[in-house]
Simulated assay, not measured.
Amino acid sequence: MDAALRRRGDPVTGRTATVVVGVTSHQPDVVVRQAASLAAALHARLVCAAVDPGHYVVEEHPDGSVHSLAVDPDAGDLEPADGALFDPDLLSRLHALLDPLDLTWEPRALAGDPTRALAHLAEAIDAAMIVVGTREPGVRGTLREFFSGSVAAHLAHRQHRPVLVVPIAPVGFADDVPWDSTT
């Protein structure tokens, strides 16, 4: 860690705060941008965590990283040596968004249930908070949330860190939303 980063850390402990942001290949850039803005304002490092629910955790490391394997045994031939795969297209997008900023960041590939994986990572690295986006608009996002639940809601109720939810496609109060039973 360089001296400038240490100076910007906590004046008592000397540690730098960490913000964890859940990232997916299909989410709009606004989630990462908001998390980066918050991390910069807090002089914190940003950990961009992508969770693959098609993998299961074989081994968890003290730094929050995991060794994972595909649930589908036929997909095993595609696994990297460390068992964690970060989508190269998503990584490229993150580099384009975050490299120009005065910010320390790193990608982290996780596996399993997104809620548990993000909460476990945040606990392992003692993150100050977790940032996630709202569900994607449309029928597909509504169905996914109906069957699996909201990651943001599960995080808010199942771990002790603050959760910042970034709206992906905000809807005005006068507009209809598919999940609102009052309309």
Score class of each variant (00 low, 15 high):
2 D>N: 15
3 A>W: 11
7 R>T: 10
7 R>Y: 08
10 D>L: 02
11 P>K: 09
13 T>M: 08
15 R>A: 15
15 R>G: 02
15 R>P: 00
19 V>I: 15
20 V>E: 02
20 V>Q: 05
23 V>T: 10
23 V>C: 07
23 V>I: 09
24 T>G: 15
28 P>W: 01
32 V>H: 03
35 A>F: 13
36 A>H: 08
36 A>Y: 09
37 S>N: 14
37 S>Y: 01
38 L>M: 14
41 A>W: 07
42 L>H: 10
44 A>D: 04
46 L>Y: 04
46 L>R: 03
49 A>P: 03
50 A>M: 14
51 V>T: 11
53 P>E: 09
56 Y>M: 09
57 V>I: 13
58 V>D: 13
58 V>R: 13
64 G>Y: 01
64 G>H: 00
66 V>F: 02
67 H>G: 05
68 S>D: 08
73 P>K: 04
73 P>V: 13
73 P>A: 08
73 P>H: 11
76 G>L: 12
76 G>E: 12
78 L>E: 13
79 E>W: 10
79 E>L: 15
81 A>E: 15
82 D>F: 04
83 G>V: 07
84 A>P: 04
86 F>H: 05
86 F>W: 05
87 D>A: 10
91 L>V: 01
93 R>V: 08
93 R>C: 08
95 H>T: 13
96 A>Y: 00
99 D>C: 05
102 D>R: 11
102 D>H: 12
104 T>K: 08
105 W>R: 07
109 A>K: 06
109 A>W: 03
112 G>L: 12
113 D>H: 13
114 P>D: 08
116 R>Q: 13
117 A>S: 14
118 L>T: 09
120 H>F: 03
121 L>E: 02
122 A>W: 09
122 A>N: 07
124 A>P: 02
125 I>C: 11
125 I>Y: 03
125 I>M: 05
126 D>K: 05
126 D>R: 12
127 A>Y: 03
127 A>C: 09
133 G>L: 12
134 T>R: 01
139 V>T: 14
142 T>K: 01
143 L>C: 05
143 L>S: 02
144 R>Y: 07
144 R>Q: 13
145 E>W: 00
146 F>D: 00
146 F>L: 15
147 F>P: 01
148 S>R: 11
154 H>N: 10
156 A>P: 02
157 H>I: 00
158 R>H: 15
158 R>F: 09
159 Q>K: 08
163 V>Y: 00
165 V>F: 03
166 V>D: 09
167 P>V: 06
168 I>W: 00
169 A>Q: 11
170 P>A: 11
171 V>N: 02
172 G>E: 11
173 F>C: 07
178 P>H: 07
179 W>Q: 14
180 D>R: 11
182 T>N: 11
